[in-house]
């Protein structure tokens, strides 16, 4: 029975890959870019979901971890020549000047460094709960950004880095996104995942049951930061340029919005809302331009897009307070049950 289900899952993933491959060859650059962003936001949303959704810790430090991943991987993929032309104001530190490795190992390094720093940052502040933790993590992410602004010989400071080879393709973004989804499902099914959720439901009860709070919270933070670092690296190599201002807390809110909209704690919900938010934001662009309704034309007002987008968000939150999916998931069982009900009705 399990084998059959896994086979179906495998088949579904194959179909998704097939669809993506077809889209990759038929779509224009603009649509591909949006699709890439959607994939990256799935990774970022899921990484925040581990901390905020599974474990119930309210972290607002995501942009900082993304910045670490983005800068680490960018500095590792740049050639010596690129570094020299970028660091015209202050030369780069000698030990980094000639380092250049491939994209995948660089991404991985970005993730690992982000994970290590995430763990280091989380360790002293995990005693805090709720709002206090949120403020502390927000502070840390801003500190990371300010450090990156001031270490000119390491990050080129406010001038930013440009001319990164744009390695990021659909294969990387969606490949890693699919792997992340699978990892999140298996994490949640594991004893670690169950412990994380126990902490979310009732910290005291979880501790009484013998769950090491510190260890598990740290684990959640480390995993979250790791995937945030990977996402940051992918974003940097999609853009081809990064600077510290890119990683303001607004970026954290973008990711948080995806998690809340999808349903805090829901893996499929987060993935769906990542795609919905990214595509909607771009699709709504027509509102900013001239709208031709056939019988009349409306002169677009710049910014109308954001107004409508915010309105839609408010509607979702008012009518579905737990996000699109709540804590539910789309699984084979629920999908089967759903289709089954239709069959019964037809019969």
């Amino acid at each position: 029975m399990i084998d059959k289900k896994n086979l179906i899952r495998f088949g579904l993933i194959l179909i998704l890959i097939l669809i993506l491959t077809i889209l990759n060859t038929t779509m224009g650059k603009y649509e591909i870019r949006v699709l890439n962003l959607a994939g990256i936001y799935i990774i970022l949303g899921l990484s925040l979901n581990v901390i905020n959704g599974f474990t119930g810790l309210f972290s607002l430090g995501h942009a900082g971890f993304m910045a670490i991943g983005a800068y680490t991987s960018s500095l590792l993929t740049m050639s010596a020549l690129q570094k020299e032309s970028n660091f015209f104001a202050e030369p780069i530190v000698p030990w980094l000047a000639n380092v250049q490795i491939g994209f995948l190992p660089a991404l991985l390094m970005g993730g690992i460094i982000a994970a290590i720093l995430g763990a280091l940052i989380a360790a002293p502040i995990l005693k805090l709960t709720d709002d206090y933790l949120a403020i502390a993590t927000l502070g840390f992410s801003e500190i990371i950004r300010v450090i990156f602004t001031n270490t000119q010989s390491l990050t080129n400071g406010a001038l930013g880095i440009k001319g990164l080879t744009r390695f990021t393709t659909i294969h990387y973004t969606w490949g890693i996104a699919i792997l992340t989804v699978l990892f999140m499902f298996s994490l949640r099914r594991s004893s670690y995942g169950k412990a994380l959720m126990a902490i979310r439901e009732d910290q005291t009860a979880a501790e009484a049951m013998g769950i090491d709070l510190f260890k598990h919270k740290l684990l959640a933070f480390t995993i979250g930061s790791f995937f945030a670092g990977i996402g940051g690296g992918l974003l940097a190599h999609l853009m081809g340029t990064i600077d510290p201002l890119m990683f303001r807390f607004l970026l954290t809110f973008n990711v948080l919005l995806i998690v809340v909209l999808g349903g805090i704690g829901s893996i499929t919900g987060t993935a769906i809302s990542a795609v919905v938010v990214t595509v909607m934001l771009e699709w709504l662009r027509f509102l900013d331009g001239v709208i031709d309704l056939g019988f009349m034309t409306i002169q677009g007002i710049p910014g109308l897009r954001m107004v409508l987008f915010s309105l839609l968000l408010m509607m979702v939150i008012i009518f579905k307070q737990k996000g699109l999916m709540g804590r539910d998931e789309i699984t084979l069982d629920s999908l089967g049950g759903f289709l089954g009900r239709f069959k019964k009705k037809e019969a």
């Binding site: 650059k29 603009y30 974003l235 853009m239 771009e282």
Partner: peptide
Amino acid sequence: VVDNKSDKVESANAATKLVDQ
């Protein structure tokens, strides 16, 4: 005219829309 929302990622999207679409 396209809006880049004072955001680097959006800016890249906006520019892609201009040249591609």
